[in-house]
Amino acid sequence: MQIPKPSDADKDRFRAVVPENPDVVVKPMFGNLGAFVNGNMFAGLFGPMIGVKLSDADREALEASHQTLPFGPEGRAMGGYVGLPEALSDTDEQTAEWVEKAFEYVATLPPKVAKPRSAKK
């Protein structure tokens, strides 16, 4: 499976559209970036593509107005996430609005509980 690597400009753009909130954590994931709230990812970077986890209503609104893309590796898209259309790539303001909606939605979900680590053998 080929995982695309984002450029430094892609990473900077991703960080620029993620909400400035003390509850947001941006961390590396497989050479890309993910933005988390309460341990749950609400936005991710996969190569140059930004993907978001939206409520059903917001996802339907986005899909009705834009051609969205599967988010994740080809043939193994991440369930519940939608890739923001390339048409939004030139308008960081609109991208930031969708990332904000994802943040607001995922912030309402229960916090992710860390799995206990197994003892080393």
Rank of each mutant, 00 (worst) to 15 (best):
I3D: 09
I3H: 10
P4R: 05
P4S: 00
S7M: 06
S7R: 09
S7N: 05
D8C: 04
A9T: 10
A9M: 06
A9R: 14
D10F: 07
K11E: 11
K11G: 05
D12G: 04
R13C: 01
R13E: 00
R13L: 08
R13A: 07
F14Q: 06
R15A: 07
R15F: 04
A16H: 02
V18D: 00
P19Y: 03
P19D: 02
E20H: 12
E20K: 14
E20Y: 03
N21L: 02
P22Y: 02
P22M: 02
D23S: 11
D23L: 08
V24G: 03
V24L: 08
V24C: 08
V25I: 14
V26G: 06
K27D: 13
K27H: 13
P28R: 11
P28H: 09
F30A: 15
N32S: 14
L33M: 08
G34T: 11
G34A: 15
F36A: 03
F36L: 13
V37C: 02
G39M: 08
N40D: 02
N40E: 06
F42Q: 04
F42I: 02
A43V: 07
G44Q: 05
L45Y: 06
F46I: 03
F46Y: 15
P48Q: 10
P48M: 03
M49E: 10
M49S: 11
M49T: 12
I50K: 03
I50S: 03
I50R: 04
I50F: 07
I50E: 01
V52P: 06
K53P: 04
L54N: 10
L54W: 05
S55L: 06
D56P: 15
A57I: 11
D58A: 14
R59Y: 13
E60D: 15
A61T: 11
A61G: 12
L62I: 13
L62M: 15
E63H: 04
E63V: 12
E63L: 09
A64E: 09
A64H: 11
S65M: 10
H66L: 12
H66M: 06
H66R: 14
Q67Y: 11
Q67M: 13
L69C: 05
L69P: 01
P70K: 11
F71W: 15
F71Q: 10
F71S: 13
E74N: 07
A77L: 03
G79M: 02
Y81I: 08
Y81M: 15
V82C: 04
V82S: 07
V82G: 08
V82F: 03
G83Q: 10
G83P: 12
P85E: 08
E86Q: 15
E86P: 12
E86L: 11
L88F: 11
L88H: 10
D90Q: 14
D92I: 04
D92M: 04
E93N: 02
T95L: 13
W98K: 07
E100S: 08
E100L: 07
K101Q: 04
E104R: 11
E104S: 01
Y105S: 00
Y105N: 01
Y105G: 00
V106F: 01
V106C: 01
A107V: 00
A107N: 05
A107Q: 05
A107E: 01
T108G: 02
L109Q: 12
P110S: 04
P110F: 02
P111R: 09
P111I: 05
P111K: 09
K112T: 06
V113I: 14
V113K: 15
A114D: 12
K115H: 09
K115C: 07
R117S: 14
S118W: 05
S118A: 12
K120D: 10
K121F: 02
